[in-house]
Design a protein around this nucleic acid. Structure first.
Length: 1031
RNA sequence: GCGGGCGUGGCGAAAUUGGUAGACGUACCAGACUUAGGAUCUGGCGCCGCGAGGCAUGGGGGUUCGAGUCCCUCCGCCCGCACCA
């Protein structure tokens, strides 16, 4: 009988649904196993083939564990608050809840079609009030706790209040704001209630703070650090600036050490752990206080990891933004310093990062005093020192730090050697710690290990410093000026926030007339009638920071999760998802979990014991080349610039220069103007061009690549800008923008792409290009293509190419799983995705191999049939049949355990091929085989299971037990090596002794030939494996 | 620059502790059945060589009876971080 997945798959999906096959109870005699997928954001584009990769792998594991006798929790839900739904709402006026609902329905349908064993009765949605009620509740708990360093955990604010009223904050060892003033019990007790509330904000784990934030004007909201890449927003690529704003802040720094230590207790990929360690950025060192010469009230505190180099300090450097700079600067230096500060502030993040090699800075005129030797050292400012790290001031040791060395070299500051083993300091700094100290007073003659404690002891005795640990981790800004997120359950009264009563939760997201900020720049919630609460909403990571507990008890209205449920399920045994969440979701959820643990609400410090990152499935992007010259003629030269130049006089235009090593640059010249379009990151190059233009007496028109995008979108507006710039200024530099992969929509299915590879490649819809040949008939139906002037190659064909890129709607390379499922069946799709390669590897989507899996499933199905008849007999299997089955049991069992799903599919193919050759149709073999394949192809397994006479689900079968006896072979083909190289093979009993094996090997004619009559020097025999004769 | 990972046929990849490198699948070649083949079946398929044989896991070196696997070194690619004192 023919294998037709379309006949059997929908049938069993309905059957599973009707029988609640995947419903899980919160109690069982069986051991529990919690396997979790990172839940998706339901975007409008629907699921693409990359999404299910991890879900399929986890589903196989979940089904396998269930067959092995575990009570398995394997849920799915939706991270349904977020930006795209809101952007869509802004454009269409449709409520984001409506589009979100539609998208979820689509996602669920797609997911269900793949045959996952999710328990949908436990589905969660972060935008559901029943869910975000508890997100708000946890927020309130954070507000009501502070971090006590002596207890090394979060304690209630009430206990802090008691303590303050008894003894003030003297001796209180708690995490708080840097500017928390000392407070006596008397002072506390005489404070008014609002004053007390204000004071407590210094300690609360979530609090409103004035923070420098990543403000994205285009999105009208702040972004977290992990939402910003290369100075632009990760989503949309809009410029981001630093701005001081009042924001809700999470005191995640309180947990820095625990988040770091916890990493040692979980089985997570090393790269993720390293990224988190890096993000937390712990450095151990010392703080040292330097006096300022002639200013007794002032001092400069620095943090250093190399206090041992203190005698090598020859200058100090402060970040230009520091308030202190203004106080220190002498009148003679004031102009220079202010000029530098202004210049530094005007530099974009990208510019600053691009020029790390050459040192810039200015002397303040002031001097600091090294507390150890009372030497006066000049105080400089430079933007290589960051205001946001440590104290924003460094003690510069040019002999030991390369940046300081470079700076000293540039400004002719002295370099003092401090170690006897130090390298040639004329060439570079020597950051090593080898040798003994010289020129170093207190520590002369000591080595590094002796010097550090000596110096710190001295500092602490004199009160001039102390051992100190510094972190890169910043407190996390928790406010977003957006609509589609959880409302913050706070009310402001006289500038002081108060949490609403938890009985009033959830605080529902109100209706608004528009999803935009108000005219005076307030967030969208300000539009809601009668809204008296906080106007900002929570960020995208709020709901995902605890959702894994909600699955345990999704409908509980009294608690975020019942104690019984959490006691039963504990934490996640196996978590699978993409590595892009390395320092976002995976760090924030660990933080919240540590907090919930402190409150006794979570049973483990870490919420996920094991984590696996699935690799990305990339798409194949197709391109057609567009004639380059025409592109510029049309858009840049003819439409805009030529009229302008004509007015100025005759123009000669050089060929666009495409062959530069940076190919997205192009340049051309007129007789009085040099035009350059380039990445602003190419600073050196810009300088070169600028100099050349000046030398030729020409003016420079410099356009960034992003500007070019804008230019083509709105040529008139931009042309006006260019004209204005050219008439008013000598030089015009357009806004710096994103530097690569700028995509420009020209129509719904054609894109101009600027990438380092070519300016004139067009992304083409996958459907238009087949096997590198553009389907002209289809392409002509698109209006833009009809007008486009594509490049013809020598044979008169359109030049096409392709590249592997991330799957994205804008690249027209998204492959939808529905088509695959409809065409080949869900089982085939599942096994094919697994067969692509190891789940952790990134791989381009390529459907070429699907016929292999499809053919295999047909053959596998065929094992159970004789022509049209289902045919499985009860004869006793022979040894070879047993061997095939048990080899398969062993391999598949081992490989699922190590998540090697691709090789499992291979083993099924081998077993099927072998059994086919034997014409095996025996129940004792085929029935266990159906169970083995059930995790991979649940539909085909269920069908066969029922045909084999069972009425229950194959999901409740028992995993076949391996019998090692069947793996044993009487004889084996032994490889015979001569000096480690294979020269012959010989069939021998598997358990042959060393002596017999040696004799048999030496008797071989091929071996004798190599021995040339001599006795072997040595014979190595590995029992049951091989023989190696050493000549 | 720092950290993590990787490098094996035309392609996706196997090789779990050092023990017959390339399983399985694609692509390709030949044949069979066919009116036909994007169906099915059989055989071949790392490279060089008629062959014996030689050479092969990014290059070079080492340890070992034996190295894709361990060590050193160089090269290349991917990912992350990046003036963090």
């Amino acid at each position: 009988m023919e294998y037709r997945p379309s006949d059997i798959e929908p049938k069993w999906r309905n059957w599973w649904k009707k029988n609640n096959t995947y419903q899980v109870e919160n109690h069982s005699d069986k051991p529990k196993y919690y396997i979790l997928d990172m839940f998706p954001y339901p975007s409008g584009a629907g699921l693409h083939v990359g999404h299910p990769l991890g879900y399929i792998a986890s589903d196989i594991l979940a089904r396998y564990k269930r067959l092995r006798g575990f009570n398995v929790l394997h849920p799915m839900g939706f991270d349904s608050f977020g930006l795209p739904a809101e952007q869509y709402a802004i454009q269409t006026g449709q409520h984001p809840a409506v589009t979100t609902e539609q998208n979820i329905a689509r996602y669920r349908e797609q997911l269900e079609n793949i045959g996952f064993s999710f328990d949908w009765s436990r589905e969660v949605r972060t935008s559901d009030p029943g869910f975000y009620k508890w997100t708000q509740w946890i927020f309130i708990q954070l507000f009501n706790h502070y971090y006590d360093l002596d207890a090394d955990k979060a304690l209630s604010i009430e206990s802090l209040v008691k303590r303050l009223s008894a003894s003030g904050n003297a001796g209180l060892n708690a995490v708080c704001d840097d500017d928390t003033p000392p407070l006596s019990a008397d002072e506390w007790n005489t404070m008014s209630e609002p004053e007390q509330a204000q004071f407590l904000l210094h300690y609360r784990l979530t609090f409103p703070g004035e923070e420098y934030v990543n403000w994205c004007p285009a999105l009208g909201s702040v972004l977290s650090n992990d939402e910003v890449k290369d100075g632009v927003s990760e989503r949309g690529g809009h410029p981001v600036e630093r701005k001081l704003m009042k924001q809700w802040v999470m005191r995640i720094t309180a947990y820095a050490d625990r988040l770091l230590e916890g990493l040692n207790t979980v089985d997570w990929p090393e790269s993720i752990k390293e990224q988190q360690r890096n993000w937390i950025g712990k450095s151990v060192g010392a703080s040292v206080r330097f006096a300022v010469e002639g200013m007794p009230e002032q001092h400069i505190e620095v943090f250093t990891t190399r206090v041992d180099t203190i005698y090598g300090v020859t200058f100090m450097v402060l970040a230009p933004e520091l308030e202190l700079v203004k106080t220190l600067t002498t009148d003679e230096q004031r102009n220079a310093v202010e000029g530098y500060i202004k210049w530094a502030a005007s530099r974009s993040e990208i510019e600053r990062m691009a020029s790390t090699k050459k040192a810039t800075g200015v002397f303040t005129g002031a001097y600091a005093v090294n507390p150890f030797n009372n030497e006066r050292v000049p105080i400089w400012i430079a933007d290589y020192v960051l205001a946001g790290y440590g104290t924003g001031a460094v003690m510069a040791v040019p002999s030991g730090d390369q940046r300081d060395w470079t700076f000293a070299r540039e400004f002719h500051l002295p370099v003092t050697p401090i170690l006897d083993a130090q390298q040639d300091l004329d060439q570079a700094a020597d950051p090593t710690k080898e040798g003994r100290y010289i020129n170093s007073g207190l520590i002369n003659g000591m080595n590094y290990a002796e010097a550090v404690p000596t110096l710190i002891r001295w500092l602490e005795e004199k009160g001039l410093g102390a051992g100190k640990t510094q972190y890169k981790l910043r407190n996390a800004v928790f406010s977003r000026q957006r609509y589609w997120g959880e409302p913050v359950p706070a009310i402001w009264e006289d500038g002081i926030p108060r949490m609403i009563d938890t009985a009033e939760l959830p605080l529902l997201l109100p209706a608004v007339d528009k999803y935009l900020p108000t005219e005076n720049g307030e967030p969208p919630l300000a539009r809601a009638k009668g809204w008296k609460y906080e106007l900002s909403t929570m960020p995208g990571w709020a709901g995902s920071s605890w959702y894994f507990y909600r699955y345990m008890d999704p409908n509980n209205e009294q608690e975020f999760c019942s104690k019984e449920a959490i006691q039963y399920w504990q934490n996640v045994d196996f978590y699978i998802g993409g590595s892009e969440h390395a320092v976002g979701h995976l760090l924030y959820s660990r933080f919240w979990n540590h907090f919930l643990y402190d409150l006794g609400l979570a049973p483990h410090r870490e919420f996920a014991q094991k984590l696996v990152n699935q690799g990305m499935i990339q798409g194949r992007s197709n391109f057609v080349y567009r004639a380059k010259e025409r592109f510029f003629e049309e858009y840049l030269l003819i439409k805009v610039l030529q009229p302008f130049f004509s007015a100025e006089g005759p123009m000669a235009i050089a060929e666009p220069n495409f062959e530069e090593e940076i190919q997205y640059d192009f340049a051309f010249e007129t007789n009085n103007l040099a035009i350059e379009v380039t990445s602003v990151k190419q600073e050196e190059k810009i300088q070169r061009i600028r100099n050349a233009a000046r030398a030729d007496g020409k003016r420079l028109l410099l356009l960034s690549t992003e500007f070019l995008t804008e230019f083509i979108n709105q040529p008139e507006i931009v042309a006006e800008k260019v004209r204005a710039a050219l008439t008013s200024r000598e030089e015009f530099i357009a806004e710096p923008g994103r530097l690569d992969n700028v995509h420009l929509f020209v129509s719904h299915n054609l894109t101009y792409k600027y990438s380092p590879d070519s300016l004139t490649k067009l992304h083409v819809d996958v459907n238009l290009v087949d096997d590198d040949v553009l389907d002209l008939e289809k392409a002509r139906q698109t209006p833009q293509f009809a007008q486009a002037n594509f490049k013809l190659d020598a044979e008169g064909k359109y030049t096409c190419s392709w590249e592997v890129e991330k799957m994205s709607k804008s690249k027209f390379n998204v492959v939808n799983p529905d088509i695959m499922v409809a065409e080949h069946g869900a089982d085939c799709f599942r096994m094919f995705e697994m067969f692509l390669g190891p789940i952790t590897d990134a791989k381009p989507w390529n459907t070429k191999g699907i016929t292999g899996v499809s053919g295999f499933l047909r053959k596998f199905w065929g094992l159970y049939f004789d022509g049209e008849q289902f045919h499985v007999g009860d004869e006793a299997p022979d040894r070879e049949e047993w061997r095939i089955l048990h080899t398969c049991i062993k391999k598949v069992t081992d490989d699922i355990e190590r998540m090697s799903m691709n090789t499992c599919v291979s083993h099924f193919m081998i077993a099927t091929n072998d059994l086919r050759k034997l014409n095996c149709s025996k129940r004792a073999i085929l029935e266990p085989l159906a169970v083995l394949i059930a995790p991979f192809g649940p539909h085909i397994a269920e069908e066969l299971w029922h045909r084999l006479g069972h009425s229950g689900s194959v999901c409740d079968a028992a995993w076949p037990v391996l019998n090692e006896e069947y793996l044993k072979m009487d004889t084996k083909e032994f490889p015979i090596q001569i000096n480690g190289k294979l020269r012959a093979t010989i069939e021998l009993p598997t358990d042959i002794s060393a002596a017999e094996a040696e004799a048999a090997a030496l008797a071989l004619e091929q071996v004798q030939r190599w021995l040339e009559g001599l006795a072997p020097k040595k014979v190595v025999f590995v029992p049951g494996r091989m023989i190696n004769v050493v000549v």
